[in-house]
Nucleic acid binder design. Sequence first.
DNA 1: GCTTAGCACTCCCCATGGGAGAGTGCTAAT
DNA 2: ATTAGCACTCTCCCATGGGGAGTGCTAAGC
Lengths: 358, 358
Amino acid sequence: MPDDRDMLDERSIKVLWAVIHSYINNPDPVGSRYVTRKYAFDFSPATIRNIMADLEDMGFLSQPHTSAGRIPTDKGYRFYVENLMDEMEENVSVHEELIESLTKRLDDLREDIYTLLDETTRTLSTHSHYLGIAVSPGPDGSTLRRIELFPYSDDRIAVILFTNEGIIKHKILKNSFSFSRNDLNKIARYLNREFSGYTIKEIRRCLFDEMARDKALCDSLISRALSLCGDVVACYGSNVFISGLSEILELPEFSDVEKVKELSRTIEDKHAVIKLIDSLANEEGVQVIIGTENTIEEMKAMSIIASTYKEGDKPAGVVGIIGPTRMDYSSAISLVDVTARYLTKILDEGGRQWRRER
Amino acid sequence: MPDDRDMLDERSIKVLWAVIHSYINNPDPVGSRYVTRKYAFDFSPATIRNIMADLEDMGFLSQPHTSAGRIPTDKGYRFYVENLMDEMEENVSVHEELIESLTKRLDDLREDIYTLLDETTRTLSTHSHYLGIAVSPGPDGSTLRRIELFPYSDDRIAVILFTNEGIIKHKILKNSFSFSRNDLNKIARYLNREFSGYTIKEIRRCLFDEMARDKALCDSLISRALSLCGDVVACYGSNVFISGLSEILELPEFSDVEKVKELSRTIEDKHAVIKLIDSLANEEGVQVIIGTENTIEEMKAMSIIASTYKEGDKPAGVVGIIGPTRMDYSSAISLVDVTARYLTKILDEGGRQWRRER
DNA sequence: GCTTAGCACTCCCCATGGGAGAGTGCTAAT
DNA sequence: ATTAGCACTCTCCCATGGGGAGTGCTAAGC
């Protein structure tokens, strides 16, 4: 909202920033006297009071009750994130430490992205003291690298799926036919030739078309191969990783048990979380969702910082931080940014040799 | 403690049972008047008071403060679990419902034990309203069914491990040699011939012996095969699944946030949980650990009901429930019992055709 | 006209204290 | 051995009131 930006003079902006800055560090309503003293304004508390009253009228601040100090509204935080954060603060890059910690913890895991993401959420949460969250690539983020088949028991076969992103999925399929190992090798070769390099989503669509079109075509091995592939690809979904509950419980926001219950119910519901995060999956760079901007009722008191990590130049999955609206946006944002870039780099190194021109 | 049993006459036992029964349903200290009325004793409150005072002297009950009612001690619960539970209560088998729910949710998952166990904890927690917990088979619970190898990239190979318990582990190994697919097939055949049917732990020991003994023997393919196998087997560990935090937060025990923090810290530490559970892994039947009997400091206020599930007749992993000491032991125990048996059955059906005589 | 000092006012927070209620232990009577 | 009666203890709840922090408004000052 560039309008808002224009509505505020230098002085108001400074006051708004001071209130938010103070409130982020300490969740007490901020009073006029405190602002003048702590932030060394050349005005008396009375002047600051007038300014704060104006800011409240404009919707940037609010009062818990008459005769308490002001606290930022979601709109206030939004303004802060968009206009104030960078210019008011020299962005201290304490991120060497983070990168070091990421490197140390993640470097061995680059072949197994699920463990990798799980560890990532741990690192995010210990560094931010909020919830760390990660979503693994879904059907349109994962590119098939290879598929392997072999007999598992008399009537079952094992399918192993490798993707460029380092995801390894296995599935045991019950099959009415019994395939010889040779058959399976042939099928695997066929599927690899046909589908590797495509995303799971593309493969799904392709299978769908193929089957619709070629019902007549009855090369039985191929049609069996396709249906096999369909079975595996059908249940391909994102995984969600969240950690740091004990971190976030330390915040005064969660001294009320009801809040804790609400939060734990929400994050136990993976579907809700995926829905929440997926809307961000196609945006570039770090996304910030503040409080009520959120779609999930139980999360209206929380903010989300998220960014996609990529495989090649295609968005794969999402990493982020969930914390209270009173969040240290500045460091949270750079934390998420650095982490997403780091994951992208890891995937890049792992996937380079495999990426296929199309 | 058979001594205790003898120390208590019929009447005292009835009172003890009444106090525990009442307290389990409602966490208020139980008074003498309440006991006489609610449990239809033929004595006056004064008599009950005397009995309760005796029970307190013997350590079965305690008072939060003078002039409050009595609450059970851990020793009281222990006595209840060992002597009173079965005889005082007709064990209502509401477990058709549970089995149905297990069947519905788990039947499709029998080939993937991790998802299976995860769902199991969910079922356990929704039925008990406590925490559901499951530990997957560790090195001495898992029997190798099959090992598969194939090239993954120039300098890496993929190893897939199947166990009788339905565990499928994959690992990407960086290797200084480059193996041809043919080599890998040979190696896999060799390893399967040599090791399938043995537990991971046995394989570890065996590898160790072999390598020590046959350092001289330098059939290079075999020695490479062994070292390959060693790499995979080395990092084989148990997984822990826990769910139902939001269930357990509903209990009045957790109206204090400190308690919640403590609990969430504890269950976030998988190592501690494994340590806690592993001690039970070799016992038969359902185990009950009450409050301070526990080794972990933060869990002294909790009880654990756990049972091993088996593969064949060998204990594989553990399932259980974690709740407050004031737990509905009776139904928790049969819940865990039924669940463990069900898992055993599923494993049995999946593994029968594969079990190998030795 | 902007700024500020002064002041009355509002509202939260917390310590205090008293009363109701529940339950006990003891004693004396049955 | 059991029980009625009673004094006593302790918690919980609520009402009360003072202290403190902060506001809004008004009128005076630059």
